[in-house]
Design a protein around this nucleic acid. Structure first.
Lengths: 347, 347
DNA sequence: TTGTATGCGTTATCAG
DNA sequence: CTGATAACGCATACAA
């Protein structure tokens, strides 16, 4: 038989506006109006169209709609990875804020690879994104050039250098780590170690290290090379770094970590080595992830509201999309949470 | 002046294929071919078109392309939340797998709200997604009905009931928790508590609880009502639940937790109350998140490869999209990681 | 190998 | 308030 079984037959063409129009005995224009300018169509007809559309399972197809409307209602988010809860939270908040306004979020993870980031942005532009949120500003210049050429609003998140050429929403990483270092210096520490994520191609991390260096320099101090460990952000790297540092002479009396995972590793290893924290070693983190307050002792760290960053980024872009030219947003200010892992050095 | 400043003028219309065609002195069809069937156009012309396209910053616009091609190259992922690293990892892996084949991922978080999930899926269908990955199968029937009506391939993740009507990629939650409970029973525990996420509208969690009940029933045991705490998955809920349970008489000698966060809270609180783990109380988790192995003592839990789930889901959908009808995939099998928080009950 | 012409599904303009 | 019709940007069958 050349005829297909009507039950399992080929996917019947999806219904189109014409089909609904025919079934409801109106013109295609009216169908469109019912979904876009309901108030412009007589209530009786409106209900009829709505009913038949529902019965046929029809909704305006986004591709056709985008073409005619010349708006895609899509925005893109470009982040390093979802494996870091910091970025996951930001994306989650953005997705929510956008969804409430009927706009859809396209996601892309460039995995800390600058070429990948450029590629991702290109793909998003081809998709017709109306706005773009991008983590960090350490990207290839053609990435931003491509965006600007299209006159699309964008925002850089997690960076907030005072003199950045980009609209950005985040905090001043340098300032934040300057604060952390100052906290330790105020407690009397003079030999301070740093365990930090890779700085290459990561402006945020580079700024953090710079902030520490600046704070130390102000008091005539510096980071000894053997007290600076740079590597992947993982609990294990935190552990091995602290072990290496404590084997030096003199060992640091405090360790500043680039994030809470590293600090967690440092704390666990220090205790495993028989040190008491904070008496034997002070430790600081950054991000204030969920477990940090539950540790023993609870971790001194800085709290960042990642959902807030996502919300603000979304609001900023939404405003731009509606034509307004929102003023530069003030930086968020991470707050230092002094908990149990910092104290004056044991002398 | 009515003329605009050429520098800051209105966004110049984005270039279209016709513009490139004119500039390269070829037809619009050739431009299209250069990007879709490069081998069908003479090398010299191909290069010329490519060059002018690049110079003009032109790429085929996805909306027009989708309309003509009748393919959007978009798939959707519908998850409860990105705040759970389990789902974040899954999405990250999916996004990567899809991006490698040039298809774009649309993300939506329904936040454990069934109505929201239905709404999200509708929106994705309107966007013309060619496939859909959905976490869990405890959804309103019209959610699946809507998908099936469009003959779109889909897959349910994190569930794997043997008799599910849906294609699914995940593990058997019931079986997994049956294993955990059996592990404790084998150690000699008879009074076992359970701290678990809300079961309402969450088939995966309900299956977990069911698995525990079944294992206990096989040995003529049951869960005492006062030893069952159901609530949000958080470290704090784990803490307060364990505290409440240990105040009962007789107290449980072991606690099964619905995930590692709950177990982490249970462990911290038990120790804070002066109990030694596992001698005074055995504790199990689920997921094997990063910190679990670092705890003191390290947590006995079950390991699930969330990236693998994402990859498999993507591969399955990709295969469907290419027309093949892949065989049902075997369930993943979470492995029990026996670490330091389980032992025979102290008698 | 290249060009012409048509269709994809919707919205918006403009008459009626 | 409603209907006819021209975009919208691209891909492809078909003709050259």
């Amino acid at each position: 038989m050349s005829e297909r079984d009507p039950k399992t037959g080929p996917a019947p063409r999806a219904p189109r506006a014409v089909d609904v129009a025919a079934a409801a005995d109106v013109s295609i224009a009216t169908v469109s109006r019912v979904f876009n300018n309901p108030e412009k169509v007589a209530p009786a007809i409106r209900e009829r169209v709505l009913a038949t559309a529902k019965a046929m399972g029809w909704m305006p197809h986004a591709a056709g709609s985008a073409l005619a409307r010349r708006r895609t209602s899509i925005v893109g988010a470009v982040i390093p990875t979802l494996d870091n809860e910091v970025f996951a939270a930001q994306v989650g908040a953005m997705q929510k804020a956008f969804a409430e306004r009927g706009i859809t979020l396209l996601l892309s993870c460039f995995n800390y690879d600058q070429d990948q980031a450029v590629h991702d942005v290109q793909a998003m532009l081809a998709r017709g994104v109306e706005a773009l949120a991008i983590v960090g500003e350490a990207h290839r210049p053609d990435l931003f050039a491509g965006i600007q050429a299209r006159h699309i609003p964008y925002v850089v998140t997690y960076s907030h250098r005072p003199d950045s050429p980009h609209p950005c929403i985040g905090f001043d990483n340098r300032q934040a780590f300057h604060s952390i270092a100052s906290h330790l210096l105020d407690l009397g520490h003079e030999t301070i170690g740093v365990i930090i994520q890779p700085t290459a191609g990561n402006d945020r991390v580079a700024a953090r290290l710079d902030g520490v260096r600046a704070a130390l320099a102000e008091r005539g101090l510096g980071i000894r090379p053997q007290h600076l460990c740079e590597g992947e952000w993982s609990i294990d790297f935190g552990r091995q770094s602290v072990r290496a540092m404590l084997a030096t002479d003199p060992p640091p009396t405090a360790v500043i970590c680039g994030n809470d995972y590293l600090a967690l590793g440092a704390l666990l290893e220090a205790r495993a080595m028989g040190l008491t924290v904070p008496q034997g070693l002070s430790i600081t983190g950054f991000d204030d992830i969920a477990i940090s307050r539950q540790l023993d002792p609870p971790l001194t760290t800085m709290h960042v509201d990642n959902h807030e960053i996502g919300r603000r980024a979304a609001d900023y872009l939404l405003a731009c999309m509606e034509g307004s030219r929102p003023a530069a947003m003030p930086p968020l200010v991470p707050t230092l949470i002094r908990r149990g892992t910092t104290a004056a050095p044991h002398t």
